[in-house]
């Protein structure tokens, strides 16, 4: 997969929108490595939750020409950036400004991707962001164990994923990936550590999740 151009975004944009970093690239690498599997699913609908700059969903949209690519972000600046990035790279991604998958019809997503706000913070820090006007806090503040937003999405996973659906989720060691895998099992999913990488100061995993 080609890495999309992001030269239209400037340091001013990155004050409001998550700038692609090692975690973004790990997720891109994992999707690239599993591309033949993804293509074999013939996904009708792809959704990236929290696209930020839009770099990941744009790479997917460029590759999956017969897939409708959607993106939902709680940060309106990220929604705008995502549309721009897709456009700048000659493709189309739909941005919807909303929380996770709340507003989507059931069992419709075949390919789900999420690089969540995974940094361990206090729950207050996560809550307070709604009252400050710094949208960028959404990109990293994850609450206790960095799991608040991840756990909220897992609760909706069964209702949003189609029968053949697959979900790629990035997690940090502090997010307790082994516990996530057990929880997913209880919810009726198989989860494996598909890829992992040590980066300065963090150890990251990509979980690949399918229905049992």
């Amino acid at each position: 997969m080609e890495t999309p151009y992001t030269d239209h975004l400037t340091s001013i944009d990155y004050e409001q929108v998550y700038e692609p970093a090692e975690d973004s690239f790990l997720l891109l690498d994992a999707l690239e490595a599993d591309l033949s599997f993804i293509e074999s699913l013939q996904p009708q609908v792809c959704l990236e939750v929290g696209p930020g700059s839009g770099i990941i969903v744009t790479a997917l949209a460029k590759k999956l020409k017969e897939t409708l690519c959607l993106a939902t972000d709680i940060n309106p600046y990220a929604c705008k950036a995502t549309k721009k990035t897709a456009n700048h790279n000659g493709t189309f991604v739909e941005s919807i400004n909303c929380n996770l998958v709340d507003l989507l019809r059931k069992k419709t997503i075949d390919l789900l991707v999420f690089n969540p706000p995974y940094v361990v913070t206090s729950d207050e820090e996560l809550k307070n962001q709604s009252y400050t006007n710094s949208q960028i806090t959404f990109s990293w503040a994850g609450g206790v164990h960095g799991r608040r937003v991840i756990d909220e999405l897992l609760k909706s996973l069964d209702s949003i994923l189609s029968a053949k659906g697959v979900f790629y989720l990035l997690a940090l060691r502090e997010n307790k990936p082994d516990e996530l895998i057990i929880n997913l099992n209880t919810l009726g999913f198989t989860a494996i550590k598909f890829m992992e990488r040590r980066i300065p100061g963090e150890y990251l995993y990509i979980l690949k999740i399918t229905r049992k």
């Binding site: 709680i74 309106p76 705008k80 549309k83 941005s95 919807i96 400004n97 909303c98 709340d102 507003l103």
Partner: peptide, 13 residues
């Protein structure tokens, strides 16, 4: 600008 704003307030959910 082509983007639906579907954010709900806490008291709506």
């Amino acid at each position: 600008d082509g983007i639906p704003n579907m954010l709900l307030n806490e008291d709506e959910v």
